[in-house]
Design a protein around this nucleic acid. Structure first.
Lengths: 173, 173
DNA sequence: CTCTTATTTCTGTTAATACTGAAATAAGAG
DNA sequence: CTCTTATTTCAGTATTAACAGAAATAAGAG
């Protein structure tokens, strides 16, 4: 595996940095970036070399990416090593990421809010505070309902919808 | 300032936890949660006591929340201490947060991608990789364009649009 | 101006997380 | 089954970010 070009390097580093800002491990994001721009699947050893991180770190990060569902193992003819490739369709990829974040973070938050709202009576909480929790719950329910629906569209339709929505909204302003 | 009720505590802790998952400091998120559910503006000392964190921590966290634009200082008659209150309209609040995250993270990413794409020729980068970067850039431009337009709608219209969009999409499925 | 009180800044500590390298395990070839 | 090679697990280390407490600064009252 030859070294990354300067541009590739720049992208991988930036993506890693972005990851950290969104609560994603730097190495995980870097590996994802690398796999995303690389045409052929890479094995773990190659990833180590290119990124200069420990084998175990790569192993764990790849697991994480597989948990996210945006990286898959593939096997190449006559090579017993695992090779890894990223999902390539950008829209699809972000849909998967979004769905996963919803599952991991939004759903539990909605659950917590529901519990809070239902326990709020008999807890001595101010009515004002109760109402704020209700507002918040309502916000999450409304937006996630919308998301659920929008997410049923196949990617192409979704992209079209976004572009049409954009144009449509422009006629207002 | 009296202690938080159990429910309030549960919410504040959860919100803090959520913060960390999205790259937001735990204390920052906790203070935000506290101010959000509290009707009257609080001073820094009160926040310290309720959350049990150091004064300096509160001070810095409040600065951060003010930078985000979701917490404001208010002054009360006959009290020289600063008091703080959170934006209360949930939709508006998330709009502000989203706008700020775009400004801080998405815009720089778009810039980086543009640079990468334009420098990709003469860098020896594979055509395949170049294309992936272009795809990614296209994705960000399409979605942020849409976002920009959607964000021009006043909150009420936006909420309506979300609810209508939800209903509309349901007719498909 | 001076005193008091609020706020911020700074420095050191702690805690959390990321990471490494070695050891253990697993998996495939022969 | 045995040997080799790939992968994972684990225990320790390092890095980073969060936080506390003290010191410095600022701001308001009188």
């Amino acid at each position: 595996m030859k070294d990354l070009t300067e541009v590739a390097q720049k992208f991988v580093l930036h993506w890693g940095e972005m990851g950290t800002r969104w609560g994603i491990n730097r190495t995980v994001a870097q590996i994802h970036a690398l796999l995303f721009i690389t045409e052929s699947p890479l094995d773990a050893e190659e990833i180590c070399e290119v990124l200069g991180v420990a084998r175990s770190n790569v192993s764990n990060s790849l697991k994480e990416l597989q948990n996210w569902g945006i990286v898959k193992v593939v096997h190449l003819q006559g090579d017993r090593r695992d090779h890894f490739e990223s999902m390539k369709d950008v829209y699809e990829m972000f849909r998967v990421i979004l769905a996963e974040r919803k599952r991991r973070e939004i759903d539990p938050t909605v659950l917590t809010l529901k519990t809070c709202v239902s326990e709020a009576d008999g807890d001595g909480m101010e009515n004002y505070s109760k109402q704020r929790l209700k507002d918040l719950l309502d916000f999450f329910e409304t937006t996630t309902n919308f998301y659920e629906q929008a997410n049923r569209l196949p990617t192409k339709a979704a992209v079209k919808a976004i572009k049409m929505g954009d144009k449509f909204l422009k006629t207002f302003s």
